[in-house]
Simulated scan of single mutants.
Amino acid sequence: MQTDLRQEARRQAEICNACRYCEGYCSVFPALHQERFFTDGNLTQLANLCHNCRGCYYACQYTAPHEFDLNLPMALAEVRQDSWESFAWPHPLAQIFQKNGVMIAVATVLGFAVLFLAMRTLGSAGGEGFYAVLSHNAMVAIFLPAFLFPLLSITISLRRYWEGTAGKRITLAHIVGAFGSAANMKNLAGGHGDGCNFEDEDKFSNARRLAHQAVMYGFLLCFAATSAGTILHYAFNMPAPYPLWSFPKLLGVPGGILMVLGTVELARLKLKADRNLGASSAWGGEMGFVLLLFLVALSGLLLYWLGGTQLMPLMLAIHLGSVLSFFLLTPYTKMAHGFYRLAALIRDEQRKAALE
């Protein structure tokens, strides 16, 4: 971990601890004000608890040109980004993606799409619908390892995070509290409930909160659709394709639409917001992830609408390429932040429980 980033974050946290003006803004400040000294583990926990809403920066009287030159959102964003790279497994891949996120995402999607098209030229798989392009067994052989690898990688990373932040034994109450905060994006609502200042210092807005919710719930619906299709295939011997009034479609289509709308809005807000209040070196990686998630959702919807046309093999290749890229890159993209943030929320529930 980079010592200079933590030294600067420690300096700013100590000033914030003395001021306490922002105590009700989000979960960061009650946790920050409880500490007298800030260890690397404390700072890592605070950084991952921060949602970068930036309300504290615009309310702060000690920002530049004041001699204290506080920019807590940026300081915590840089520590947060460094912690993801430090805890990631394998470690070198995280650094590479954060520096070249958009390029790597595009190259990976195109590479896998070309590979799937090349497999198509070898001849029909002999099935129906999508399976006429690529057999079910081939899809399982390709995507099962691609699904299991990020789970293993993230599990190792979270274990490192938990040890690094001195996490304690987790109880059901900790999990329920953390999931409650994550479900309604409590920390993106601001201390007053009117939202945050992410895109405009003079305006409170819930736009970023709603966009995150659209992406999160859209992704969960799509995951549920995939799970429903798996159950239908193996438990009821009902292989794809499925009609509109089936669980995979009733869950997947709304989920895809929510993901498209959410990622478009996140990209718009990210382009509008001040880059100097975040980890500027990770901007490309974060935008690359948003665009990759957008492509996964959009290609899935187009594949459904064009499934009966001659464009189906091409759309299937693009969709499978984007999904495979998404899975393999998950531990090194912004997708990993959801797991770290949930871990930070659980750790914060432990902190609050210790005060009772």
Rank of each mutant, 00 (worst) to 15 (best):
R36K: 14
G55K: 10
N276F: 06
E286T: 06
G338A: 01
A132L: 05
G218V: 09
E199R: 09
M139P: 01
D40W: 02
E8T: 14
A166M: 07
L220M: 15
F236G: 03
G284D: 15
M287S: 04
L314H: 04
P65C: 10
Y58W: 15
L303N: 10
V296G: 02
P313R: 06
H212I: 02
K249F: 00
M216Y: 14
P313F: 03
L271F: 15
T3N: 15
Y21S: 11
L302D: 05
L110Y: 02
W245V: 06
Q34V: 05
L172Y: 00
N187K: 06
R80E: 12
L172P: 00
Q310R: 04
A297L: 03
L328T: 02
A224H: 07
F247A: 15
P150H: 00
T44F: 04
V133I: 14
W84P: 05
E85Q: 13
R20E: 14
K249A: 06
R11F: 12
F198G: 01
K168W: 06
A207K: 09
Y332N: 05
L293Y: 10
N197L: 13
A211L: 10
G41E: 12
G24R: 11
L152V: 12
D40L: 01
G126S: 03
M312W: 02
E8R: 14
R20V: 13
G101P: 14
F112D: 03
Y332T: 05
A105D: 10
R208Y: 12
L316F: 08
T39W: 07
N71A: 08
V102N: 08
N137Y: 03
F219D: 11
V260I: 12
G127F: 04
N48W: 13
S124I: 02
L250E: 03
T309E: 00
M238P: 00
M287G: 00
G129S: 07
D348E: 12
H51P: 01
A240N: 04
L221W: 07
A173L: 07
C22Y: 02
G127E: 07
Y161I: 01
N184S: 06
A132G: 15
L122T: 01
L49D: 02
M238S: 11
D200Y: 11
G126V: 04
I104N: 01
V215L: 14
D40R: 00
P254S: 05
F87S: 05
D348L: 06
E23H: 11
G101M: 09
G256E: 02
A224D: 04
R36H: 08
F294K: 03
Y58H: 15
S281I: 03
A125C: 00
M185W: 10
